[in-house]
């Protein structure tokens, strides 16, 4: 929340002009990648990964500063921090699994489990803090009943707040969100790593084994960059806070998926330029 006020923008619908221009940017990025002689399969993987990150962030119960004061439900920090935490945990898990097994499916699953596990631990400890340290029950302000357990909220909700704590549906949303975002981040990492593995030895004229640390570092740093860009775009879409999949703001998700796919396509195209022989 900005302390300086001003109306937050938003609305629910898709801006048709913007979406069409975005899809054109996406197609141009794919075409440019193809024209430069790269395979477009890695770029498609990056686009799917970016869209998954944008989609996953919408599940995560982000509470922001009001949640820290017990005035809104969710985890008491911003999207950038939560997404970075879940994404990096997923990325580490996936990168390690890829290193250990070399298997695409195991690595992507490892990344997803890493992200989901990190969010599960976070949600558990957040709820322990809320219930046992702050002494507040979990109650959502956006819905009357928990869609999963059927627990009712209004009688537990304090007056003047939007709810507080972390209801079960938000907990489940957090785990799903970490799972999907970790999967997307790992997908981006593995696609980039494969591109660099194949092309860096050629343009650096070096041994494939010697170039290994460079390929891993480059793919890792790029994956962090992609992750933060997509997570913040998704955060802009939900204007900072969301309770989980039951929140009305969840309906805005198509916009974020389109936006994150376009951003990933363009940034993915730029990241391919690294392995282009420019002659300098």
């Amino acid at each position: 929340m900005s302390a300086l006020g001003g109306a937050a923008a938003g609305g629910e619908g898709i801006n048709p002009t913007g979406a069409v221009v975005g899809i054109v940017i996406l197609l141009v990025s794919i075409a440019a990648t193809y024209a430069l002689g790269f395979s477009i399969v890695p770029l498609i993987g990056i686009i799917i990964g970016g869209a998954l990150i944008g989609f996953g962030v919408h599940f995560v119960p982000v509470g922001g500063a009001p949640a820290a004061m017990g005035q809104a439900p969710g985890i008491a920090t911003g999207v950038a921090m939560l997404a970075a935490g879940a994404g990096l945990a997923g990325l580490f898990g996936g990168a390690w699994a890829y290193e250990a097994t070399g298997d695409f499916a195991v690595a992507v699953a490892g990344g997803a489990v890493g992200g989901g596990l990190m969010m599960a631990i976070t949600c558990l400890m957040v709820n322990a803090t809320y219930v046992f340290a702050m002494g507040i029950p979990a109650a959502s302000g956006k819905v009357e009943k928990d869609p999963i357990t059927g627990d009712t909220f209004p009688e537990y909700k304090s007056q003047g707040t939007e709810g507080h704590g972390l209801p079960f549906v938000s907990f489940v949303g957090g785990v799903i969100g970490g799972f999907i975002a970790g999967l997307g981040g790992t997908l981006i990492y593995i696609e980039l790593l494969d591109v660099y593995h194949a092309n860096l030895p050629v343009i650096m004229q070096a041994d494939a084994a010697a170039i290994e640390p460079l390929a891993i570092s480059l793919a890792g740093i790029f994956a962090i960059g992609f992750f933060l860009v997509n997570a913040v775009l998704a955060a802009y879409n939900i204007t900072g806070t969301i309770e989980g999949p039951h929140d009305p703001k969840f309906k805005r998700v198509p916009r974020a998926v389109i936006g994150c796919a376009v951003a990933s396509a363009f940034c993915g195209f730029i990241s391919m330029l690294i392995v282009m022989n420019i002659g300098m």
Partner: peptide
Amino acid sequence: CSYGLGTGVPS
């Protein structure tokens, strides 16, 4: 950020 993004300054 003076426009109130809602996501906090760190983002």
